[in-house]
Amino acid sequence: HDTTVHINGLRIEVHGASEEILKWIEEAARRGVEAEEIKRWVEEALK
């Protein structure tokens, strides 16, 4: 999927993410993980 995830006011563009990654992002956000940190993880995961 190409999608934009909104976390604590930060937009994260996610290209080619699976449902699993999207669920993981939402879970991390709920746990209060910094949005910048999530963004870094997602970029690494999608390389």
Score class of each variant (00 low, 15 high):
H1A: 13
D2E: 13
D2R: 07
D2M: 15
D2L: 15
D2A: 15
T3N: 12
T3H: 14
T3F: 14
T3S: 13
T4E: 11
T4D: 07
T4N: 11
V5Q: 05
V5T: 05
H6V: 15
H6M: 14
H6N: 15
H6C: 10
I7M: 06
N8Y: 01
N8W: 00
G9K: 02
R11K: 14
R11D: 12
R11Y: 12
R11Q: 13
I12P: 01
I12H: 02
I12E: 02
I12Y: 07
I12M: 04
I12G: 01
I12D: 02
V14I: 13
V14W: 09
H15L: 14
H15P: 13
H15Y: 14
H15V: 13
G16I: 06
G16S: 07
A17K: 05
A17M: 09
A17T: 05
S18V: 08
E19C: 04
E19L: 13
E20V: 10
E20M: 11
E20W: 15
E20H: 11
I21Q: 03
I21R: 00
L22I: 11
L22W: 09
L22R: 09
L22C: 09
L22T: 03
L22D: 01
K23G: 06
K23M: 11
W24L: 06
W24V: 02
W24C: 04
I25W: 01
I25L: 06
E26V: 11
A28Y: 05
A28C: 03
A28E: 03
A28Q: 07
A29W: 14
A29T: 13
A29L: 15
A29M: 15
A29S: 11
R30H: 11
R31Q: 14
R31S: 13
R31Y: 09
R31K: 13
G32V: 01
G32Y: 02
G32H: 04
V33H: 03
V33W: 12
E34Q: 11
A35W: 13
A35D: 06
A35V: 11
E36H: 11
E37W: 08
E37I: 11
I38Y: 01
I38P: 00
I38D: 00
R40W: 05
W41V: 11
V42T: 02
E43K: 06
E43Q: 11
E44Y: 10
E44D: 12
A45T: 10
A45P: 00
A45W: 15
A45G: 03
L46Q: 04
K47S: 11
K47E: 07
K47I: 07
